[in-house]
């Protein structure tokens, strides 16, 4: 049994919130650079070059890439041979978020109640997904997510008869209806299978994978490849002002499901898809 003080987790999460919001991940940055070279629309090309300039400026000044520094999403895998000491894990995670958003000058975008809508002023609570895994390590992934793109996401409860074509068409339908709203070029996370809530969680988790990476499952990788081409033929382009760069990448995760169902979730993300990862 390895003892870990939860204060270490708070500190890590604080740093990860700031890092994820101010330093665009290398995979996304390279994808924008490549897109800028290949973009056919002059307006689109200009927008992509502004995004590159913006990312450089944000990193250099340690300033948020986008003012919407999101709601903090935390995926935490705790090894079953870890003994956590020093207080509650949930409170430690929220303390990390609180300090990251306050000390890091990140925007506080969370309201305590969805209907009363009073700002919590420290961006807590985070959305936390816990998992117990083998071993004595803790794996933390922090993915602050803005809501311009989150609002464009959808869950489809498809029928088994809809099959792979139904899945592909629904993903394209979701990207098309998002249009200019989620700050294209988008990154698209997809979850197929599981049940109602599981497919949504898979879609979110898919966004943690690097853009340009392929699913290890051959039949899923084929869908990713086709969606990438079809989405970029929609014409939406950077900021929805036309072009051949509508998405930077699409990642799909899948899971077992019920004989009666084919759940599908599409989690739309923007060109500021944030992700920071650490092991403790």
């Amino acid at each position: 049994m390895r003892e870990v003080n939860v204060a270490l987790i708070s500190e890590a999460i604080k740093e990860m919130c700031i890092e994820a919001n101010c330093c665009l991940n290398e995979d996304i940055y390279s994808a924008i650079e490549n897109a800028e070279k290949n973009e056919q629309s002059e307006i689109g090309k200009n927008i992509l070059s502004q995004l590159i300039e913006n990312a450089k400026l944000a990193k250099c000044k340690n300033k948020p890439i986008c003012q919407d520094t999101g709601m903090a999403v935390v995926f935490i895998e705790v090894g079953q041979d870890v003994h956590l000491v020093g207080g509650s894990l949930t409170e430690a995670i929220n303390e990390g978020v609180r300090r990251g958003y306050v000390d890091g000058y990140l925007r506080k975008s969370v309201v305590k109640d969805p209907l009363i809508r009073e700002n919590t002023k420290d961006n807590t609570p985070a959305i936390i997904h816990y998992d117990i895994v083998e071993g004595d390590k803790i794996h933390i992934e922090v993915a602050p997510k803005g809501f311009g793109s989150e609002n464009m996401s959808k869950v489809y409860m498809l029928k088994p008869a809809d099959g792979v074509e139904g899945v592909k068409n629904a993903i394209i339908d979701c990207i098309k209806s998002a249009g200019p709203n989620p700050c294209p070029p988008m990154v698209v996370g997809v979850g197929i299978g599981g049940n109602f809530e599981m497919c949504a969680k898979l879609a979110k988790k898919a966004l943690l994978r690097k853009v340009g990476s392929k699913s290890e499952k051959a039949h899923i990788a084929e869908i990713e490849e086709e969606i990438f081409k079809r989405a970029n033929n929609l014409g939406i382009g950077p900021q929805g002002l036309g072009g051949n760069t509508t998405i930077l990448g699409v990642n799909i995760e899948s899971f077992a499901t019920h004989i009666a169902g084919l759940p599908l979730a599409v989690n739309i993300s923007c060109h500021v898809t944030r992700h920071s990862e650490r092991y403790i």
């Binding site: 502004q50 995004l51 944000a58 300033k63 003012q67």
Partner: peptide
């Protein structure tokens, strides 16, 4: 340009909250 908030901030020469201070960023 959405998502270019750092870059756009360089065009802002002054900033003053004139109402609804309790709304924070809003």
């Amino acid at each position: 340009v959405g998502g270019a908030g750092a870059l756009l901030s360089t065009c802002v020469k002054s900033c003053e909250v004139i109402a609804y201070n309790d709304l924070g960023s809003e």
